Simulated scan of single mutants.
Amino acid sequence: MPKLHVVTDSGSDLTSRVLRKLAIHVVPLTVQFEEEIFHDGVDISVEQFYERLQSDDVMPSTCQPSPIDFVQVYEKIAEPGDTIISVHLSTKMSGTYQSAVLAGTMVEPDIKVVTVDSKCASIGAGMIAAAAAEAVQKGLGLDEVLDLVGQAVESLHVYFVVDTLEYLQKNGRIGLASALVGTLLNIKPVLTLVDGEVAPFEKIRGKARALKRLHDLAAEMREKHPNRRFRVGLSHSMSPMEAEKLAEALREILPLDGEIMIGPIGPTIGVHTGPGTVAMFAYPVG
């Protein structure tokens, strides 16, 4: 009987436990420090990455998987007649989606590949992939899975606080938030994503106040979607205590659908955000 499979990339920042539980397959991006190239989550750990990021003089870069990288994974997991749902980083941030689309034209003709632009990154993209995988495990058909995924993509709220805009600026991912560069010392902008592109939301003095603002934004989400429960994810770059403190607050503020998904921001996204970032992702269900 034909099967549905879910694939994502390392920019989704899903933990190994979640990947195993939901049978999600990952195609890694690479991160490059000068002449050294590492596959995210394969031959460099999160801890090793941030240590290098802060100690090396040269800013690292990332590279999307090639179409061949995707083809190898697709043909390894799928049999003729199967369908692969491939969920990836926002097209405004990476060419990974385009590589997956091209790979879909290169696989065996009896294998169907449906690519999904999450319009997000980190655990936000991971939540979309997880929603697809959970629907597959429940036995939903392709059209039902894609309808559910589409709703999640369009209703996902994203807010994040960075310690500095330096990394987003140097790596060309600052997007619409470029207007904030050069603002006053200790201004910690709350950023968001607009159609998958980084954009400014609010300027706040001090990180503690910026993180507290995320509590308020969660309360606004609850008011905007009364009688709805929320899927919530948090990611952080070497700031586990700040993420857990935020999680504790969100458990009181929002009616949750399942556990809050918490995890570190890996090399793929960490190159662009730098250390000290905390991100909140949420969408209503039911």
Rank of each mutant, 00 (worst) to 15 (best):
M1A: 15
P2Q: 10
P2M: 12
L4F: 10
L4Q: 03
S12Q: 05
L14C: 11
I24F: 08
V26S: 11
V26T: 09
V27A: 04
T30Q: 13
Q32Y: 01
Q32W: 02
F33K: 04
F33C: 06
F33N: 10
E34S: 15
E35H: 14
H39S: 13
D40G: 03
I44T: 01
S45K: 01
Q48K: 02
Q48M: 08
Q48H: 06
L53I: 00
S55C: 07
D57M: 12
V58P: 02
V58N: 09
C63T: 15
P65D: 01
S66R: 01
P67A: 10
D69F: 00
Y74I: 02
I77D: 11
A78D: 03
A78E: 00
P80W: 09
D82P: 01
H88T: 00
S90K: 00
T91F: 14
T91V: 15
S94Y: 09
S94Q: 03
G95Y: 05
T96K: 12
Y97V: 09
A100Q: 04
V101S: 00
G104F: 06
T105D: 15
M106V: 05
E108A: 15
V114K: 12
V116F: 10
K119E: 10
S122E: 09
I123A: 10
G124Q: 11
G126K: 05
I128G: 01
A130H: 04
E134K: 15
K138I: 00
G141M: 12
V149P: 00
G150Y: 12
E154I: 02
L156N: 09
H157Y: 13
V158G: 03
V161G: 00
V162Q: 07
V162D: 06
R173T: 05
R173S: 04
L176Q: 13
A177G: 02
K188I: 08
D195I: 13
P200A: 05
K207E: 08
A208C: 13
R209N: 12
K212P: 01
A219F: 15
E220L: 11
M221G: 09
M221K: 14
H225Q: 06
M238W: 03
P240E: 07
E242A: 12
A243E: 02
A243F: 08
L246D: 03
A247R: 13
L254K: 05
G258L: 07
G258K: 12
G263I: 01
P264W: 10
I265R: 06
P267C: 07
H272K: 01
V278S: 10
F281P: 03
A282Q: 02
Y283N: 06
Y283W: 08
Y283E: 05
V285Y: 11
